[in-house]
Design a protein around this nucleic acid. Structure first.
Length: 525
RNA sequence: GGGCCUGUAGCUUAGUCAGGUAGAGCGCCGGGCUUUUAACCCGGUGGCCAGGGGUUCGAAUCCCCUCGGGCCCGCCA
């Protein structure tokens, strides 16, 4: 069974027919591909719940109330004054990292491209801006409870996380006179006001029913589990390790009167050979960038086809072909078989694969067969390289009867992505089609006597042929027949000559795209 | 130091939670086909399931130990 279905069944047993799946992110910088795993993990479980006919909602909480913690590499020193201020209330950076209030809030600025990416991969969450939950007083009860149970919460955090909290620690961080939560010391509490003195020695009070302060992370998380009624929130393994925020969140959530979700921890996505993604190290690939290269259903398949607790190596090079091939093979030939005839293992394998395929669809519940657009990823990569205009590609596809009439939107999108990939730095060199200007040494060494005589024969004959695909092919066939050489050998000889390797795309189509004199020049050289 | 995950064929892995004769894809080898979609079709090769011990009629699966790999433990998914 697929992990999403398995989790959905477990949730039904544990929490009944109403489920609220949740994921959350902090928009402190460019949101990277790794964040997609959190979102897709939750969203796929949500879909599996819907498939079980449970009442399921999927909410996406943006940690817009989190403070700016430090000056990131892409920010100018101007941001010094905003450290400790909620991301929702400070201006977005411009190209030079200068704060520019005309660009909107910091949190919206980094969030909106990410929401576009979610749209593309078919994720439609209910979006909740956490600062609004503070503004409209949803947190008030939990804050009041946290302050009243201050001693117990302190003990939970100190014993479970092993961290020692300072004497003036307080389970609520008020915002001081300059908008920052740093250096603000709480001096008293009387509902609904927390009074404080900030680092400029200015005193004031915060109304816990408004966004005049926030709960520290570990309590904030536990509190919102409660008032949103969250039944499942997969967390990154940083939160999942012993003494992490999940372990403290569970008892704190109960202390505040609510049932916490069960612990569920997912592994991270790494860039192949480069370690975990991290905005600060610059070792990151954005979902926007990834979605510029890879069809969205294949991104989904990357997550759906991996177990939650396995780390994923994301590779923007040749492995994309392998991944796309696997997906297309699965779509073309989905595992089937009679449940009675299959062993338990084969049955599980079948259902897991079918589940992954189901979860990979952009639109929930649609037929996977519609997602492949009729053309394989590999074939499209070849066409995109030898044909510079899109119309030429559609013509070619019509001729090879891959498509009928006009290309659908899915295919148009795929081609656009393919062109991005090919033109960008990630495209693998061994997939590149490079037309040689002369026969290479390596090619010479690999060509047999028969192949050489085929090539001379072809060179002689082609002069009298038209320069188009079918005519070139005819010439290849006749030349091969004349020197009594197998077609495979004949094609290989042409690949060596024109591309400098022993394999390649349809050679006649490729040749017809190039000028005849240019091709003949390769032979002569 | 505390903890999590992980080790199955040359490679990527399924199967581990619910113990019941090791599955798949890629690669490789052989054959077929041929206007080659780096394709397709057929057949084959290949695993003391990291190692050791225990529980069991029976262990890749559960328990214990050892070793190797990845990662988390201020913020980060």
């Amino acid at each position: 069974m697929h992990w999403a279905d398995f989790t959905a069944q477990r949730l039904q047993k544990e929490r009944g027919n109403n489920q609220i799946l949740c994921s959350g992110i902090t928009p402190s910088g460019e949101i990277h591909l790794g964040n997609l795993r959190e979102i897709l993990t939750a969203e796929m479980i949500h879909r599996a719940c819907l498939d079980l006919e449970l009442n399921s909602r999927y909410i996406f909480i943006v940690d817009s109330m989190d403070p700016l913690r430090r000056i990131y590499p892409f920010l100018s020193d101007e941001y010094q004054k905003y450290i400790g201020c909620p991301l929702a209330y400070i201006p977005a950076p411009d190209k030079d990292g200068q704060p520019d209030s005309s660009l909107g809030s910091y949190s919206d600025y980094f969030l909106s491209p990410f929401l576009d990416a979610l749209q593309q991969i078919g994720v439609q969450p209910e979006i909740i801006m956490n600062h609004q939950s503070y503004e409209n007083g949803e947190f008030a009860k939990k804050i009041d409870g946290a302050i009243k149970h201050m001693t117990e919460i302190r003990e939970i955090i100190e014993t479970i996380s092993g961290r020692e909290l300072s004497d003036n620690w307080f389970p609520y961080n008020p915002i001081g006179s300059d908008g920052s939560m740093d250096g603000v010391i709480v001096t008293g509490y009387e509902y609904p006001y927390v009074s404080w003195t900030d680092r400029h020695d200015i005193s004031g009070r915060s109304d816990i029913r408004k966004s005049e302060g926030k709960l520290p992370w570990r309590i904030d998380w536990a509190a919102r589990w409660g008032f949103h009624g969250i039944t499942c929130e997969p967390a990154g393994k940083d939160h999942g390790s012993a003494g992490g925020s999940f372990d403290t969140g569970i008892p704190i959530c109960r202390l505040l009167g609510s049932e916490p979700p069960g612990k569920m921890v997912y592994e991270w996505i790494q860039l192949k050979g480069m370690g975990p993604m991290s905005s600060s190290s610059g070792n990151t690939i954005g979902p926007i960038e990834a979605l510029g290269l890879v069809p969205p259903e294949i991104i989904r398949y990357l997550i759906a086809g991996s177990k939650v607790n396995k780390h994923i190596d994301f590779d923007t090079g040749g492995a994309l072909f392998t991944m796309a091939d696997e997906y297309e093979r699965l779509v073309a030939n989905p595992p089937s078989g009679d449940a009675e005839k299959l062993s338990k293992r084969q049955l599980i394998a079948r259902d897991t694969k079918l589940g992954a395929l189901r979860m990979s669809q952009i639109i929930h519940g649609t037929d996977p067969a519609d997602s492949v657009a009729g053309v394989s990823f590999r074939h499209l990569s070849m066409l995109a390289q030898i044909k510079s205009d899109d119309e030429g590609i559609w013509n070619s596809l019509r001729q090879s009867s891959h498509i009928d009439g006009m290309p659908n939107q899915n295919l148009i999108n795929r081609l656009a992505r393919m062109r991005n990939w090919i033109e960008g730095p990630h495209f693998p060199t061994d997939a590149q089609i490079i037309i040689q200007s002369a026969i290479t040494e390596e090619a010479r060494d690999n060509l047999s006597t028969e192949q050489n005589s085929f090539l001379s024969e072809f060179q002689k004959r082609i002069i009298d042929y038209e320069w188009n695909e079918s005519s070139i092919n005819e010439c290849i066939r006749e030349s091969a027949a004349a020197v009594e050489i197998g077609m495979r050998q004949a094609y290989m000889a042409l690949y060596w000559t024109i591309l400098g390797k022993y394999f390649g795309p349809r050679i006649a189509a490729l040749m017809s795209e190039i000028d005849k004199d240019e091709v003949m020049a390769i032979f002569s050289n």
